[in-house]
Design a protein around this nucleic acid. Structure first.
Lengths: 155, 155
DNA sequence: TTATGTGCAAACCGTTTGCAGGTGA
DNA sequence: TCACCTGCAAACGGTTTGCACATAA
């Protein structure tokens, strides 16, 4: 599973004629090992250090930029000023909202298959009424997540 | 109109027991004079300088933070790494999406009264299925805006 | 009068860059 | 071989902070 992700990315890189270095491989492995996390550059760097110190923070920045430019990673824009990245998988073109818990900071991916019709209706409305050509969207909901919603003490 | 906005904000500030200084007034006037723009701290600073040089960039940062903490401004999170701010008006609790033109960088406010039912349905779905308490949301669409969509040369 | 606000310069911190040396294809 | 990649240290740019002075209430 994780290995599949790694292989796919590596194939994509060489197919595009880019070099596969030790450092790129390290970053890719670190990201693919945590496919459902949203990681900052520093997070990724820390993961790489577990397996090898043979990579610098500068290079992680460069590889992350490389992966983002090549549509393997996507940069999220969350209001806490840190930049987070996530893997772009097969569902790349699906609207893909996130929920951020304001208490613990955890980021959740939302699967919106059930309400795709509503989402699409919104996009169509906007395209039509404003004459916009929509290429992508980022949707963040902020609030309190399930882990931080305290159970009632009595009912 | 603009004066209304200014008065409302000033009232709110003194009602909350905060001091009203020359500098705060300058920032508020600069923002209120352009109620439909999304401005960076530097933009705001530049507007203040038109009317008076009696304010520093540092103070603009501090006043913007003050206004944000007091729910007069809202910070937007757009992927181009600059922080932009907008006035929170009476419609504060309405979902309030934006569209960003990737060509010219212009930011558009979207009025979604017509499709509020769809929007609300999405939020309800998320709250229910994931057990989230949603407090706010930021929705950005990226693409090409009407000004940058070239007219066809022939049809 | 005095708690707060302000200006300046310096610190901060995430990110980028120049350069000399290393390495994948 | 050689174009591209990497590490280091230094630069960068937006933002914050410490401190002495100024000012609204």
């Amino acid at each position: 599973m994780t290995q599949n992700i790694i292989n796919t990315i590596i194939e994509q890189i060489s197919a595009d004629g880019h070099r596969l270095t030790r450092q790129k491989r390290l970053v890719i492995e670190s990201i693919a090992a945590h496919p459902h996390e949203h990681m900052s550059v520093e997070n990724i760097y820390n993961y790489t250090q577990i397996h090898s110190t043979d990579i610098s923070l500068t290079t992680v920045y460069r590889v992350v930029k490389f992966l983002t430019d090549n549509n393997i990673l996507r940069k999220l824009n969350i209001y806490n000023d840190n930049n987070y990245y996530e893997l772009i998988q097969a569902d790349a073109n699906m609207p893909h909202p996130h929920f951020i818990c304001q208490q613990c900071g955890k980021i959740f991916d939302l699967d919106l298959n059930d309400i795709l019709p509503q989402i699409n209706k919104c996009q169509q409305h906007i395209s039509k009424n404003y004459n916009f050509k929509i290429e992508s969207s980022t949707i963040f909901y902020y609030g309190i997540g399930p882990d931080c919603r305290k159970p009632r003490l009595y009912k």
